[in-house]
């Protein structure tokens, strides 16, 4: 009876600001939405700056370095497509510029992750259209 929306490897829906975000990722250029007026980063993207109330936005590049904030280690699949990846750590990384992302930190066993561990971005070209920004220990 139960459906499972996670049975396929789920790609982002490339429309609106998500399309813009992933278009930069495809070019190996990690950028985040930033208020064009007061220069405050925000993620995920949204229409209005909650600091200065400007609607003006820009896609600002970041250095691609950050630190591990927290994580969980998936050991039960959320869908069939994920079985071969398990166990994988789904990590929240805080970029040096401020935004935090849900991502993977690869090249290190999940049980060796540490809060505050410095990491650096790499680009996983998953499909011709979608490149994911993943991280590895610095």
């Amino acid at each position: 009876m139960n459906t499972n929306v996670h049975d396929d490897y789920q790609l982002p829906v490339l429309q609106g600001t998500a399309k813009e975000f992933y278009t930069y990722c495809k070019a190996h250029d990690l950028r985040f939405q930033r208020c064009a007026q007061c220069k405050t980063f925000r993620h995920p993207p949204r229409p209005l700056c909650n600091k200065c109330y400007s609607f003006e936005t820009e896609w600002a590049p970041v250095k691609g370095t950050g630190k591990v904030y927290c994580w969980t280690v998936a050991m039960a699949p959320i869908g069939k497509a994920w079985v071969s990846y398990m166990p994988y750590a789904a990590v929240v990384v805080e970029l040096d510029e401020g935004p935090r992302v849900a991502t993977w930190v690869t090249g290190i066993p999940p049980d060796q992750l540490k809060v505050g561990m410095p990491v650096k971005v790499w680009y996983d070209e998953l499909t011709p259209e979608v490149t994911l920004a993943k991280f590895k220990p610095l």
Binding site: V5, H6, Q10, L11, P12, V13, A18, F21, H43, P44, Y69, C70, W71, T72, A74, I78, G79, W82, Y85, Y88, A90, V92, V101, A102, T103, W104, V115, L126, V130, L132
Partner: peptide, 26 residues
């Protein structure tokens, strides 16, 4: 979740909430 978490295999409530539990443990 659809556009920014799920491509990384994060899509079920225990996962989002485990982030908080891990932080609490830390």
């Amino acid at each position: 979740i659809r556009d920014y978490y799920r491509p990384f295999g994060v899509g079920a409530p225990p996962q989002h909430y485990a982030w908080m539990a891990q932080r609490h443990m830390h």
